[in-house]
Design a protein around this nucleic acid. Structure first.
Lengths: 146, 146
DNA sequence: AAGATTTAAGAGTATTTTATCTTAAATATA
DNA sequence: TATATTTAAGATAAAATACTCTTAAATCTT
């Protein structure tokens, strides 16, 4: 459902949000190299994907020593759907699961009524969940990588 | 979420189930060429994907004149998840949405508890919905292609 | 001002998925 | 038996996605 690019981006955004809480990183830029290393992601791939988030206004970037990226809004104002929309687009939520152009609530394909309900719930989850919500669960997660 | 191969396969299976109801097609093989033409799908791509459904025992195939494919079980016994499992596999339902190996109910990643619930509902929908259920909605759908 | 650090941008490569083509095998029918 | 029809299987091609590399630009530090 999520592309690899989107999956990595969400992980990285949650990581940044979490770091930003700590006094040491408050309002500072966090280097993409560090993020990729800490999360076990590809620096190249992550940098490339972050460029879209910067253009979309979710991240601010800064070059040079002490440079990196930081959130432009507080974690409570950044929703997972904002990241998904930028990286993957909204096709998943807008298009018929069987690929019919004309499928809609008014003219439903043979599984539209079943699927539309699930899709709405997924959308709702991504709309309701913010980076703030996500970082609340991090402490409990005993994985090395956030 | 569904690959193009899976999307096409499900459409085609619903189409076959629907045709099978009609007296004229009862227990007959339906040519893949006809299915692809009627649904506006690629004959080549559909044949290739059908090979998996045949191997998996969902379809029976027959070569030569009057050949084609037909369902091995009544539409009420073929679930959408059976098709998904054969064509796409179950990774979507088994793997963490953020890609963590160790993510589970016992050791949840930062969005596992939110996502697991949605994923369960999607799985449940695909498990509960049979081709029989799908064809019940076809008449209402005013699209040229089923 | 020079050098080191860091992201931006675009080009390039690899892998996966999608789609097509070709040949062979099976089989019905004339 | 010969021919036409139809799927099977493997090879190939095209497109999309994932991933990497190189060079440039910005900017901090010395």
């Amino acid at each position: 459902m999520l592309s690899a690019a989107c999956r990595d981006s969400i992980r990285a955004m949650i990581y940044i949000a979490n770091l930003s809480k700590k006094e040491k990183y408050k309002d500072r830029f966090i280097s993409i190299y560090k993020i990729a290393r800490d999360l076990g992601l590809s620096f190249y791939f992550l940098s490339k994907n972050f460029q879209k988030l910067v253009k979309a206004g979710l991240l601010e970037s800064h070059r040079g020593p002490q440079g990196g990226v930081k959130l432009l809004k507080p974690p409570s104002k950044i929703r997972l759907i904002d990241i998904v929309a930028v990286i993957d687009g909204m096709d998943f939520f807008n298009n018929c699961i069987l690929g019919f152009e004309k499928c809609s609530d008014e003219n439903p394909c043979s599984i539209h009524n079943l699927w539309a309900d699930k899709r709405r719930q997924i959308l709702s989850m991504f709309e309701k969940t913010t980076l703030e919500d996500a970082i609340r669960n991090i402490e409990k997660f005993e994985n090395i990588k956030v």
